[in-house]
Amino acid sequence: MADKKVVTIDDRIPGIKEKRKKRTNRRLITYLSIFFILILVVVYFQSPLSDVRNIQVEGMVHVDADKLVNQSGIEKGVNIWNADLSGAERNVTEMDQIDSVSVDRSLPSTVLIKVNEYNRLAYIEMDSGYSPVLQNGTILRDDVEQELPADAPILRNFSNEDKLEMLTEELTQLGEGVLNRISEIVYAPTDEDEGELRLYMNDGITVSSLINNFASHMSSYPSVAREVDEDADGILHMKMSPYFESTEEEITGEKEENGEEE
């Protein structure tokens, strides 16, 4: 009888018991999942899962991809979260040829290096090959191309360093459309002017110009060149005021007076 009278509250209100059970279960699940998630996190960081396995390079034209990766200082096998991305950006930017660079993680295990190289204004012909002149005027003397690339004109006969520097400075200011038209620029100093240049253009016109104000002299080339008869032999002088000096008389031996055209 006495036993019967002692009835726990739990028994009397079954709802509360249910509730309590549920609450305990839920709490247990929460603690357990936190625990397992923590374990997974530890496993991820300790295992090769978080290592850099790929280093991708995009946007390079002339620079060797391996060289870029070396320069960046990022190595495979380093934890991807430990890799010094901003340091890598600094390292790569130090290279002469690189205009800008961005280094990003591309999860799960790739580091993506996007570079933007300086365009090349010209290649200087040297004994050992062709050394590029960059958009910012820098001449890469150590980075010589063995075979001639097609993306910029060649500079020949530039024995005079000062003149070369003056010309590269002018080239930076020249419109890219005109720059794309030039095939060769030969330094041909004369007694009259030390800065005399001889240009061979893609359209077959030979141009004579000067290093001083080269960019402004050449800027009107597109509209001047179309006035020049393609079949005419001669030299187009792109100086203060452009004119065409025909050499046809020399070939035919006739003395024609129509030597100059504008």
């Binding site: 794309n180 095939s183 359209d203 077959g204 179309r226």
Partner: peptide, 29 residues
């Protein structure tokens, strides 16, 4: 690429390729 009037643009097609006559071309072309 920026180009000015009269610039050559090479178009490579899917057929048999034969060498054009390059007399008078510039080195760059």
């Amino acid at each position: 690429e920026p180009l000015i009037i009269g610039e050559k643009v090479f178009l490579l097609t899917d057929g048999e390729i034969s060498m054009p006559d390059m007399t008078g071309w510039s080195l760059r072309d």
